[in-house]
Design a protein around this nucleic acid. Structure first.
Lengths: 303, 303
DNA sequence: CTGTTAGCGCTTTCAG
DNA sequence: CTGAAAGCGCTAACAG
């Protein structure tokens, strides 16, 4: 930086202010400094900036799974000039360890949570960081459940099971109850968000006294597993069991599953934009993202 | 750190040495300092360490796509105490920008490349960083192509097309040529590593004077696209066209495609281990990972 | 084996 | 609006 300062004929402090867009620099000086810096291919050393109490130029992204959403968020953050510190907190071990150690202190300018569904204690831990945080998670899932349920209810279904991916901490059966359905507790089940997980969960669902006529799965891969397993068991989809995925992964499209899209995907960039606004000291109002119900071949009128 | 030093009754330098496992500290002192540090929940400030010329405690992970491999690598790096700086360099725009700007200078202790297939120029750029680099990419793909080709040749196929994902810079038809096959250039084609990409590429392949009897696809999703499109065109798989995927994504399993597994997946952790060895100044010899051919329903004897 | 002394490259008062 | 000086929390070179 002092080289740039020398080349531009100003002090390092002025270079610092100019490059960061701090007020108190004449427009002419700022322009000149910027030009020189660009010419010299100079970039602020983030470590030093951070150490001196300035910005850290880094955002922590905590995600429960590596999804396309992550790619979207990464791109948006990168473009805004932030480093992406990735934490994949899929299983409860790594997750617990993270929140025990709380390793983010004084290291990031903000936190982006992707489908993390924090508990109160976890939220409190992050709050100690005193940096802006944006979460994309269960509120969206909540709406998705509602959209899926409405679709199924319109088709006459009354017996609907809910398959939630590990890491989804809350239950959502109250949404179904609100819709006037009777929801036995054994119809809310958790499984790993994989095809295998979906296959396994079908066994549990078949064990109960009653069989649901429809299943809503938060995970696209699990929905596929359910689809495969139900068929292998000699039942047909959608005639015997309708399936709705709440995640529009490509795999659901290939298999032809009805899905609610929009909850996870497109929100990455939107969330990043909000986060950056917060970091700059602005305010954000949560704008509702439209959810799209894509009806394919895995749902039909109950018989 | 000076607080810890005071509490432990030593100097900051000794704390630094003790905590980093540097030689020149008595085992008793190291133990004592460690205890005090743990009790005070002290952790080295990475920024300051980095600025002072020490380790940076960060590894850049460059990946062309967010895959399960990424999750594996992240976990292994995290466990070793490194931050993961994520760069998703999927499209050529972001990729080019990255290598133009070379933003990693003096910021990471190592680089992990996941399916990046660097060009010479790109490799040279990274080499300037002067930090250990490990790549998981085309060498593995090369072996995969060979395994797939051997399988198809054993089934009597002589007309084999190669579909490579964007970002795969090299062609691999010489592997087929070595196997004694005649490989017209129009049978090596590139497409985006998505179902859509695979569907589109089928059109190109059908345009030529001759139709291949088998297709090898580096991308699992594209393989599925090829599978779907070929069938939609009224041809059957595998009777008219055999398909082998070189990527054992879950989706290929669901659709029932023959695949060569092991090239991309399990190598994440292995690569991280190698990288850490390099960082510590050790040597690594590339150990061959076994590739597994999983024969499913998309390949059969040529008729 | 341990302590002391200089910075690393910034940002931030505080003066001018 | 700009500059000088102090210091962020560490590591490294040098003494002892």
């Amino acid at each position: 930086m002092s080289d740039v300062a020398k080349a531009a004929g100003v002090s390092a402090a002025t270079v610092s202010r100019a490059l960061r867009g701090e007020p108190g620099v004449s427009e002419a000086t700022r322009q000149h400094v910027s030009d020189v810096a660009r010419r010299m291919k100079y970039a602020i050393a983030r470590d030093a900036s951070s150490l001196a109490g300035g910005r850290r130029y880094a955002i922590a992204v905590l995600t429960s799974t590596v999804s396309p959403l992550l790619a979207g968020a990464e791109g948006a953050l990168r473009q805004a000039g932030y480093d992406v510190l990735l934490y994949v907190l899929g299983d409860s071990t790594s997750r617990q360890r993270f929140f025990d150690e709380n390793p983010l202190g004084r290291r990031v300018d903000g936190v982006l949570l992707l489908s993390m569904n924090l508990t109160e204690a976890e939220s409190a831990g992050l709050a100690e960081l005193a940096v802006p945080t944006i979460a994309i998670d269960d509120n969206d899932l909540r709406d998705s459940v509602r959209v899926a349920a409405e679709h199924l209810i319109a088709l006459g279904h009354r017996d609907i099971a809910l398959v939630l991916a590990d890491g989804v901490d809350e239950s959502y059966d109250e949404i179904l109850v609100q819709a006037g359905l009777d929801v036995p507790p054994e119809w809310t089940v958790w499984c790993s968000p994989t095809v295998d997980g979906g296959e396994q969960v079908v066994e549990v669902l078949l064990d109960g006294p009653r069989m649901p006529t429809a299943v809503i799965s938060s995970s696209g891969a699990a929905a596929v597993g359910i689809f495969l397993r139900v068929q292998r068991d000699g039942r047909s989809v959608p005639e015997d069991v309708s399936i709705v995925s709440l995640d529009g992964q490509e795999i659901t499209r290939v298999v032809g599953l009805t899905a609610v899209e929009g909850a996870f995907r497109e929100q990455g960039e939107h969330a990043v934009a909000d986060l950056l606004t917060l970091i700059r000291g602005g305010e954000v109002t949560p704008a509702d993202q439209p959810l799209r119900l894509i009806v394919r071949n895995s749902t039909t009128r109950v018989r």
